[in-house]
Design a protein around this nucleic acid. Sequence first.
DNA 1: CCAACTTCCTTCGAAATCGAAGACAAGCCG
DNA 2: CGGCTTGTCTTCGATTTCGAAGGAAGTTGG
Lengths: 372, 372
Amino acid sequence: MRGAQGDLLRLVATGQAESRAELARLSGLAPSSVSLRVEELLDAALLVEEGAGTSRGGRRPRRLRVSPTAGLLAVADLGAHHARLALLDLSGVPLVVEERPCDIALGPETTLDWMAAAFDDLLRSHAPPGVPLRGVGTSVPGPVDPATGRVVSPSRMPGWNAFPVAEHLGAHYDLPVLVENDANLMAVGEARAWPGCDNLMVLKAGSGIGCGLIVEGRLHRGRGAAGDISHVRVRADSSAICSCGHPDCLEAYASGAALMGALADRGFAVHRPADVAALVADAVPEATALVRNAGRLIGEVLTVLVNFINPDAIVVGGSLSGAEPLISAVRAAVYERCLPLATRDLEIAVTRTGPDAALLGAGSLLLDAVLA
Amino acid sequence: MRGAQGDLLRLVATGQAESRAELARLSGLAPSSVSLRVEELLDAALLVEEGAGTSRGGRRPRRLRVSPTAGLLAVADLGAHHARLALLDLSGVPLVVEERPCDIALGPETTLDWMAAAFDDLLRSHAPPGVPLRGVGTSVPGPVDPATGRVVSPSRMPGWNAFPVAEHLGAHYDLPVLVENDANLMAVGEARAWPGCDNLMVLKAGSGIGCGLIVEGRLHRGRGAAGDISHVRVRADSSAICSCGHPDCLEAYASGAALMGALADRGFAVHRPADVAALVADAVPEATALVRNAGRLIGEVLTVLVNFINPDAIVVGGSLSGAEPLISAVRAAVYERCLPLATRDLEIAVTRTGPDAALLGAGSLLLDAVLA
DNA sequence: CCAACTTCCTTCGAAATCGAAGACAAGCCG
DNA sequence: CGGCTTGTCTTCGATTTCGAAGGAAGTTGG
């Protein structure tokens, strides 16, 4: 897909434009040029005309949509013990989402080959005939070097260090391949649900603590570890040594793994972070207190970042995001301690996208690669 | 200056391109189109051809420069007790730089009218005849709402709250007017001296502590207070209440003002932050210890931001930047505590631009406004 | 010194893009 | 119901931009 057409298709696919007139406004092209390009996209069966939109006082626009036959994207959100897999159409709408158990500790080759097989499986059972696969993407729970698509010193991924994930996955396909950190993809997916918020911090509170940063509407990658808040030193009464070797990292107190450990010490049966959220939902005092304390610690770290970045919103996702005391404590810390200018219009909210945020984010970034 | 020409002129003015061929490479336009546009800019006397550049193995390029007669920019860097004023040509090169005493506590009208008079003064004495003034800009030592050009709750600027600085200054001129926070402008100015570093944190250590953030080559403004690190809570032995009402803000321990206070308590005669740096240069133990401690505290705050943003470099400027122990302590804290991935290629250095950074930054942003 | 190669810049026909004007299709309103 | 207004989309000549080819002015290397 070359330049101008790609831009137009992207605007339709991302839901920013639904008519030729909107395309003209957003793309900066002349209405006549837009008509020509759209005509070509219709001929190529990448776009379809679908009825009429709502009038804004004049003639009703002819609604444009990405054709369901334009192509599919296969995406995965890879966790430590299970992966969510999905097929999306080019506008990012899921045809099918599945969660399957897996184990990243088996190493990259095994895991990625398993993933490719799972994608084939989904395509066989759910892809309409004749619709081509156009891109493949996955999240990984660790830092990814944006230049090379390699995983870099991931603490939760034994055996994966410096493994060329994108390259290995790409060997199965002659297609654009995307590999990105899970919190980053979650941020991208979430960003589409927050129109008007160009600067967004998306916290992933799961068994680890991650954060994705959207600046001016675009994912901020840094050197691959951007968004890390796990290893910030927090003010704690006791003293814990983190796996990174430093004392009192946020992760050692406020991560899902830390909370699970603390609850297990007190005799609760918790096997995954969602179990912690469940205990909180059941109003178990120990769990609530621990989660609230975790939220306070996270919130105190976020104050620094909110003052510095001035985001439009902080969105909390991940399997602990269902624990209301966590969000409340984050809110309390941020609103109490940050500059008024930074919090005046700051929204702190739970995910609008739900558990598929990273899958949708992968679709969004993949679309860019496909239409490049 | 309309679009395409503006882009080309900007590339030459910012020193990114010196020949038609470079313009073609950087602008994405076809060589033939570049030649046409350059011809028009030469006819309009905005560009001049000036000899030949150095060959890169083939025909030598014909070097292009912005004409010295193309226009001037009047810029100021406004401090609490003095202002630096300059006239720049459109490529950002100063014709004249002066420092004059002033007092922002006299209020916005008085100060800004004084500034306009000072600009007129400079223009009379230093502007070549017939060269038009094309833009006016100033820094202010406080947050600026990017949308309105108003100062917002500035702690060091009594009487300025919500004052429409850009509007008032604009009444003197029928020209683009720029008003921006001082640390932000410093960051923009510094960024041009760090080619290849697209993500930059620029620390201004003066009587206050400010920070400007460059992301993907562009200034990050947030809601106007972005870059603030003054009011981060630090781990301190004693307890001090900051002017913002919270305990143990960084500013209360590590700002030039705080250091001056501490030194004055010990009987030293210090009247401006540079005096602190001078004491350190004279190896006065009390001053060195205080400055080193300030650097450590600042560095600890920066660790959070470095992990989160992964900048390419941290640049330290401001009147305390000459104090070597400050930089060393910042370096020590950041390199010790940050993630290896974040510090692997991180440079922590003193300003390359010197005291005129904010003036040059103002010129850089003004150029964008002039060529819009 | 002279060919071979590089890079820079221009020339000129082809192609893409624009923009003004108008056709088209609604809602609004007495 | 029939103007009136508003917004959408297309037509078509004018303009801009492109791109391939070639000339100009160097360097490099036998």
